[in-house]
Amino acid sequence: MLRIEKLVKQYPTGDRALRGVDLMVPEGEVVALIGPSGAGKSTLIRCVNRLVEPTSGKIWLRDTEITALSARRLRQVRRRIGMIFQEYALVERLTVMENVLSGRLGYVNFWQSWFRRFPQHDVDQAFALLERVGLSDFVDKRADELSGGQRQRVGIARALIQSPDMLLVDEPTASLDPKTSRQIMRLITELARERGLAVIINIHDVPLAQLFVKRIVGLRAGEIVYDGPPEGLTPERLTDIYGEEDWGAGQAVAGADSAQEMDPEPSPIFAASTSNA
């Protein structure tokens, strides 16, 4: 489904965020991308839909070479890649419905979107999706009236109404409380399974990733240093990913983790899984 070859990104400032990344994500597989801040996670998923222009390397979605597309063709391919963001990235002054329908912008012409006259088929789908994520009663509420968890649900609906082949998910839970985080992760993985989507999830919270995802990729300083099942994440592996300095015993992981995202609850699941491994 998605194939990344020798992907390199060097920012104009000289920072090399990605140093030759190779990655395959087959259809229907959910991949969690973990790694310290600045490891290039965010850059990597933004290269996939070219919100960030890669310096070199190639990316294929099925048999389309994304890295070789013109601006116009790129927009057509972006329709097939849904994206979910850390701070929800909703347009706060638009209604929930408008936010969801904005996922169809790549399919309608400018005037249809300007007058908010989306095809009835899109509207039906939007209502169905809002029901699926549990927001049927919020259709005409403005996005800034919603709570964090509700906003992220709108974000998910916006990504799914694109009828995507794959999802890029950037820190979906970093701004949410632990309970809502789990609900959102569950929703994303369930929906991915229902629709057979390939998914890449950037995530800080290692225990949460281990709980919901079958394959974990560790990124450190722009290079992949781990690719395997969650059980394989031994303390040594985690040291590879997060580096010696931030890393002592298992306890310190949770500490480093919560320091980065200020998660109030150092998760007990992590301790459980490391002791298993």
Partner: peptide, 27 residues
């Protein structure tokens, strides 16, 4: 963030202006 999100849906420049910039700027 909203600008990036709308761009990611495959919207063209005018649509990004309409959906991401105008709602923030018009008031």
């Amino acid at each position: 963030e909203p600008i990036e999100a709308i761009t990611a849906t495959g919207a063209n420049r005018l649509q990004v202006l309409d959906y991401a910039y105008l709602p923030q700027v018009l008031p």
